[in-house]
Design a protein around this nucleic acid. Structure first.
Lengths: 122, 122
DNA sequence: CTGTATCCTGCCGGATACTG
DNA sequence: CAGTATCCGGCAGGATACAG
């Protein structure tokens, strides 16, 4: 139990963990692991994210040092985002989790059916 | 891009991923990896969680087949929760992520200071 | 002790319009 | 294209009371 123990309420690592694992954070990091992407490319890849939330998510991840924003001064504007080395390490762990969950979805789905069946009977 | 691709909006794995990585889900799974725990033990371990949210989180995780609830018919009531084998696999990946983030917090914090310094100057 | 039921508020996040 | 600004509804989630 050190100063950065995520289970403790007032701990900065809890906030960072939430940025990374949050609804849009996890998908954004996952998408950027595959390749560096421009704003609207990301928006298309992360299905369902709004401009506002993508922008906000990117700012947060950039602030935490997980993403770098690179703006090229051309017209039309060209900006792309990529993971930092730390961001890539985080992404690897995250993708490990994502792929595990994806691969085990049949188990999850049948567990849900079992749960709903017993609960529905009550 | 298969049927369970988490980047797609209508995909069941996205929901499950959110249950696991969500604010309370991640901490609950992490806590249960260390040991099987009773309701109020969990509540103390996951600092800041309310009864309502812990209960809700546990139901969701149980439904997804990641947690098993075991109630012993004694007085006072004795109920404890533990991870299923699938839950343990998920927890391992999750803890890998958590420990990485905790260990790299100094980097994150200094990144934040740099970010805030340049932004505050504008 | 282990939970549900209810109420209520803050803020997450979607829609829309606008700017450089 | 790459965002910001503003508005606003819904719901996550906290507080409290209560039940088994």
């Amino acid at each position: 139990m050190d100063a950065f123990d995520v289970f403790s309420r007032q701990c900065p690592s809890r906030a960072t963990l939430e940025h990374v694992t949050g609804r849009w954070g996890s998908l954004t990091v996952g998408a950027l692991y595959e390749s560096r992407l421009r704003f609207n490319e990301l928006r298309r890849r992360v299905d369902g994210v709004s401009e506002k939330m993508l922008s906000q998510t990117l700012h947060t991840l950039e602030r935490d040092g997980l993403v770098v924003r690179e703006a090229r001064p051309v017209n039309p504007p060209w900006v792309d985002y990529e993971l930092t080395p730390l961001g890539r390490e985080v992404a690897e762990r995250l993708l490990g989790l994502i792929q595990l969950v994806e691969g085990r979805m049949p188990e999850v789905i049948s567990a849900r059916e079992r749960y709903d069946a017993t609960r529905g009977a009550l």
